[in-house]
């Protein structure tokens, strides 16, 4: 099936899937924390846009609530909180050094290929859109992990963590038209509490190692030092 045979809605979903994967790559290559958070907010807004489009076109009114929650949490609240923390901790001028950005990008690209490979048998009998949705969301999850592996700043870890959740939500919205309401609310509550706890942790970590560079959290190990 070629792209032009798809309905307008399906094409739009593919476009948004592509954009969301793109934001994940942008985060991977972003060395300034402030911009990292900005791109993360953009990803949240794209996710909310996807959700509300599914809600509108396929007429699932309960998805509007989900879209609103996503926009509020991932697009506005969490980025603002991270911004304020970054400024309060004086991290806005700091650059996180990226080692081997080219290699990380290549790694990211191969993760996307891998995601498509894994998803192929699963969606063998489903339309093209589902394949892309599942593969892209798996890719966003894996790219979030890659982001966490390659960074040292605790803030970047939190962004990676939240972007993993974005990937999961994208899969839930496009392939299953949203989770049941009770689950959706529960997950949103968990994300909210997690954000607050992360905020608390930033202060605890800074109080204990005087920076947010988690590489320095290396006191506990199996080997006696």
């Amino acid at each position: 099936m070629s792209i032009t045979e798809l309905t307008l809605y399906q094409q739009a979903i593919l476009l948004l899937a592509g954009l969301i994967a793109l934001t994940s790559f942008l985060m991977l290559g972003q060395s300034r924390l402030v911009r990292l958070v900005l791109v993360f907010a953009l990803q949240g807004v794209l996710l909310a846009a996807t959700t509300s489009m599914v809600a509108y076109v396929l007429e699932f009114p309960h998805l509007y609530i989900s879209a609103g929650l996503t926009l509020l949490l991932k697009g506005i609240l969490i980025p603002i909180m991270l911004y304020r923390l970054i400024y309060r901790m004086g991290l806005h001028r700091e650059m996180d050094t990226l080692e081997n950005p080219a290699r990380v990008m290549m790694g990211g690209a191969s993760l996307v290929v891998f995601s498509y490979y894994v998803s192929l048998p699963v969606v063998a009998h489903s339309p093209l859109v589902t394949l892309n949705a599942i593969a892209v969301s798996l890719a966003v999850v894996l790219l979030g992990m890659l982001l966490m592996i390659t960074r040292r700043q605790a803030v970047a870890h939190v962004v990676g963590f939240m972007s993993i959740e974005n990937g999961l939500f994208f899969a839930a919205v496009v392939s299953t038209y949203g989770m049941p309401m009770v689950v959706e609310l529960g997950v949103a509550a968990d994300v909210l509490v997690a954000t607050v706890v992360f905020g608390v942790f930033f202060f605890q970590i800074r109080a204990s190692i005087d920076s947010l560079n988690v590489d320095r959290l290396s006191k506990l190990s199996e080997v006696e030092k």
């Binding site: 999850v141 963590f161 959740e165 942790f201 970590i205 959290l217 006191k219 506990l220």
Partner: peptide, 19 residues
């Protein structure tokens, strides 16, 4: 410092794991 490190590890690993 040890307990903060343990808690951070717990949070990140279990958070990503459970995702």
């Amino acid at each position: 410092p040890e307990s903060v490190e343990a808690a951070w590890k717990y949070f990140i690993l279990c958070g990503v794991g459970i995702a």
